[in-house]
Computed example of a mutant assay.
Amino acid sequence: MTALGFLYPGHSAEDDYPRIEQLLGSDIRVDVVHTDIGEDAHRVDALRRMGAAERLTAGVEELRLAGVESVVWACTSGSFVYGWEGAHEQVRGLARAAGMPASSTSFAFVNAVREIGARTVAVGATYPEDVAELFAGFLRAAGVEVTGVRSSGIVTAAEVGTWGEAEVLALARAADHPDAQAVLLPDTALHTAAHVPALEKELGKPVLTANQVTVWEGLRLTDRRVNAPALGSLFLREPIVQV
């Protein structure tokens, strides 16, 4: 049994995690601890407060007692708003507090893009435009070419959590670009675990979503590879993008 730990801010799409655990169909356990979201706002100052060290470390002890082998800060915007270096410092602090390998959803996206072999990506973000552009900047800092960013301008995670398959598909379609080898949907408040195969079939290319890449990152930190086609191209053992 491999136990993965996740620090999830508030309550929006946390039910993606038990769904992903089920879809993995293996000896994987997913443990989620909720952190204090503070002000629910996709605004840089609020997001930086949400990702503050004291809020993350508050949930670490519960995960440690649960016997997890890795911990991931399950939040994209609450990590990339610190910038490339600041996000590194955030996860270094989390690893020190947890005493185990740690990461965040922002780095999960970078590592997942590399895993599938994509060099160019399109971004479909629920966030306001300024926040969405910060995510694109984070990807560029990692050497990923961003073909374009589609912003939905949603201010709260609570609203994002109400979206269903139709809205998610519409966002992915609007974000897609002919030159993009993959489409990224970066918000852990967005329910996507049940929709990845439909998204990839619709677009004809890999689609990386926040909760999907977050769990994959937890597995990566423990050196586990799981073949789970129901979770999309990222969970196939062989990359499908030719570069």
Rank of each mutant, 00 (worst) to 15 (best):
residue 3 A to P: 12
residue 4 L to C: 07
residue 5 G to L: 07
residue 6 F to G: 12
residue 9 P to S: 04
residue 12 S to Y: 08
residue 13 A to M: 13
residue 13 A to F: 03
residue 16 D to F: 02
residue 20 I to H: 07
residue 29 R to E: 15
residue 35 T to R: 09
residue 36 D to V: 03
residue 39 E to A: 06
residue 43 R to V: 12
residue 47 L to N: 06
residue 50 M to R: 14
residue 53 A to L: 07
residue 61 E to W: 00
residue 62 E to A: 07
residue 66 A to S: 14
residue 67 G to H: 11
residue 67 G to P: 13
residue 68 V to G: 01
residue 68 V to P: 11
residue 69 E to N: 04
residue 70 S to Q: 12
residue 71 V to Y: 01
residue 75 C to P: 12
residue 75 C to N: 08
residue 75 C to A: 09
residue 78 G to I: 10
residue 81 V to E: 12
residue 88 H to I: 08
residue 93 G to A: 04
residue 93 G to T: 03
residue 93 G to V: 04
residue 94 L to T: 08
residue 109 F to M: 09
residue 109 F to H: 03
residue 111 N to G: 06
residue 111 N to F: 04
residue 116 I to K: 02
residue 125 A to Y: 03
residue 130 D to M: 01
residue 132 A to P: 07
residue 137 G to K: 02
residue 138 F to N: 00
residue 142 A to W: 01
residue 144 V to D: 00
residue 148 G to Y: 13
residue 152 S to M: 15
residue 158 A to C: 01
residue 158 A to P: 02
residue 159 E to S: 09
residue 164 G to F: 03
residue 172 A to H: 12
residue 180 A to T: 10
residue 187 D to L: 07
residue 189 A to S: 15
residue 191 H to P: 13
residue 194 A to M: 12
residue 194 A to K: 12
residue 205 K to I: 10
residue 206 P to A: 05
residue 210 A to R: 11
residue 212 Q to S: 12
residue 216 W to I: 04
residue 219 L to C: 08
residue 224 R to M: 11
residue 227 N to S: 14
residue 238 E to K: 08
residue 239 P to R: 10
residue 240 I to P: 00
residue 242 Q to F: 10
residue 242 Q to K: 14
